[in-house]
Design a protein around this nucleic acid. Structure first.
Lengths: 171, 171
DNA sequence: CTTGGAAAGTCAACAAGGCTGACTTAATAT
DNA sequence: ATATTAAGTCAGCCTTGTTGACTTTCCAAG
């Protein structure tokens, strides 16, 4: 099962054992199982509402960038307008999200969480943070730095750009 | 100080800045965007077939544990029998998976990839490994160790058990 | 001032892939 | 003998994704 082809032996002087197909496959499986854990807690909360993961994602990014436009959200979430619209409509109808017509450009809709929306967001993200906190604490700061580094390298360039744009807040 | 059990690292020094809500939220967003990248390449390949992510997962774990039973796969994938069956049936019909009646217990079906199944598996996993390899290489071995540590801590205990069982091959 | 095009929203239809519930068949275990 | 277990099936439902066609609103350029 081991494939030495991909990473022979210390090529120059580097130890490249962490690049064997076996190591990579372990990483793939770790991502699979970890992502299941990652979404488990919010999913449990959402069961009590008539919402799903799609609603969670919308709520998360609206909270992160209050006043963001629909088309911006479309890009970040990577779904179609029709798909997002269905989710957004129920959130607006239920009074969790407010959609304000743009002042500079009145075609645009700027999205904000209402107080009720923020309450659900806090619930969901606190559950997710709790697990993250436990994992970070158990792994330690060095591991966390590595975790973040690898994840960032796994993103497509476009996603990395959005990810880094979020760093400094703003829509 | 009372936390020494949970966090081996910053016992006395107490640099816990990596546990701020802001840091945790960054980790959450990193997981979201990275997982999109993680699934993007296999998804592109699967478009050419009439298969989806569910088929990929089944193929992956059958390849990992040749001869695994249906109920074992059910546990690992975390879906219902009906859901898995739909996927498995098409894979068997299409000749990618072989289902053999158990010898010890004839109620069980043991699953194996055919040569054609292994070919698709190689395609899919090579695409996924390519991205993983690039990320690992760019991040370096220290980061990879941290990455794996944090991911493992994010899993539910049950998943961690399956994850570690896979380490030593076979079902 | 008209017109082209962008942003947003809507309707309809469809598919993948989850789910529950009810039920059968075969084989093992008690 | 009977109960339990593994697998499979049928029917129906939901969420969340997709296309395609279309409208409304509005900005901006000719």
């Amino acid at each position: 099962m081991q494939d030495q082809r991909t990473s022979p032996h210390p090529a120059g002087g580097e130890n490249l054992l962490f690049l064997t197909d076996d190591q990579l496959r372990r990483g793939i499986e770790a991502m699979f199982f970890a992502y299941r854990g990652f979404t488990a807690d919010p999913d449990r909360i959402l069961e009590n509402y008539a919402y799903g993961r799609a609603h969670h994602r919308a709520i998360h990014f609206i909270n992160r960038s209050p006043g963001t436009t629909v088309s911006n959200l479309l890009d970040v979430l990577g779904v179609t307008k029709q798909s997002l619209n269905r989710v957004l409509r129920t959130l607006i109808e239920d009074g969790l999200v407010e959609s304000r017509v743009g002042t500079r450009d009145k075609r645009e809709r700027h999205l904000y969480l209402t107080e009720e929306g923020r309450a659900l967001e806090r619930d969901l993200s606190e559950a997710q943070r709790r697990r993250m906190r436990a994992a970070y604490r158990a792994a330690g700061p060095e591991a966390v730095a590595g975790f973040r580094l690898v994840l960032e390298q796994m993103m497509d360039p476009q996603m990395r750009a959005w990810f880094n744009a979020l760093k400094d807040g703003g829509s």
